[in-house]
Simulated scan of single mutants.
Amino acid sequence: MRILLIFVCLISLHISQAQRPGGDKPPLIEIKAKILDKESGQPLEYATLVLQSAENPERVTGGLSDPSGDFSVEIIPGIYDIRIEYISYKTYELKGIQLFNPTDLGTIILEIDAEQLDEVELVGERTTVELRLDKKIYNVGQDLTVRGGSVTDVLDNVPSVTVDVEGNISLRGNESVRILINGKPSALSG
């Protein structure tokens, strides 16, 4: 009985060692390159490298270039589609590249994609509150909190200004306030 128990233990130990998950993994290889701008020759920091396995497209790896434009990525040997992308630059692609040994892709030059660049529209707006020596100017402009409201609703949102139920306006408790709308006196104060 004792020999049978030892035999069963040895067999189970042998089976558990033979079925080890992960098994032998192939050694990783290093892929290197340098990314430069075509016009200036300057390195492109944060350029994206995408390595997608041609045999198993779900296996994707990659990395970003450092401040000197260099990147170094370790991958499992195989056949890969390589893409290098950078915002507003044309994508650099290599398809079906066999990578079974450490490889230096050399210097890769990216050029600006003028078709992606479009016009830039600048919209200037004044600040909401302007402080001057003799007055405080409140620009309603694009203030969403007062859209569709009355003048008293607008004044209620102005800091230091209070509007009571009867419509009396006061600035820091002082009711002798002169209110101008578009630079002209209004009938709101009084």
Rank of each mutant, 00 (worst) to 15 (best):
D37P: 07
T103M: 05
E30S: 07
T48Y: 00
N182E: 12
I112T: 11
L5V: 15
L49V: 15
E130Y: 09
E115C: 02
G41D: 09
T162E: 11
S88L: 11
T127P: 03
T145I: 04
G183R: 13
S160G: 01
E115F: 11
L133S: 13
D134P: 10
R147E: 11
T162P: 01
D37T: 05
I15V: 14
D118T: 15
R172N: 11
I112P: 04
V177C: 05
S170Y: 05
L94N: 07
A54T: 10
R172G: 05
A187Y: 09
G69R: 06
D113R: 09
D24R: 15
T103R: 09
Q142D: 12
I112L: 12
Q52A: 11
L105N: 04
S176N: 14
V73D: 00
T48G: 00
S88D: 14
T145A: 01
L188W: 12
T107R: 13
L49I: 15
V129I: 15
P26R: 13
E55K: 11
S150H: 06
V177F: 03
R2S: 08
S160Y: 14
P77M: 12
L155A: 02
E74Q: 13
I181N: 10
S150P: 05
I87Q: 10
E30Y: 13
F100G: 00
T107A: 02
F71S: 02
D70C: 03
V165G: 04
G78N: 08
L13N: 12
K135I: 06
Y80L: 03
L49T: 10
F100Y: 14
L28E: 14
T91W: 01
R126T: 13
Y86H: 14
P26W: 11
D118V: 15
S12V: 09
L94F: 02
I97C: 00
F71I: 11
E45C: 08
E30C: 02
G63D: 05
G63E: 06
R2N: 13
P27E: 14
G173H: 11
I169S: 03
L36R: 15
A33W: 07
L49W: 01
L64T: 10
I6C: 03
R147L: 06
Q98A: 05
E93G: 00
L10A: 10
K95M: 03
G22M: 06
L133P: 11
L180M: 13
E30D: 08
D113H: 08
I35L: 04
G183C: 07
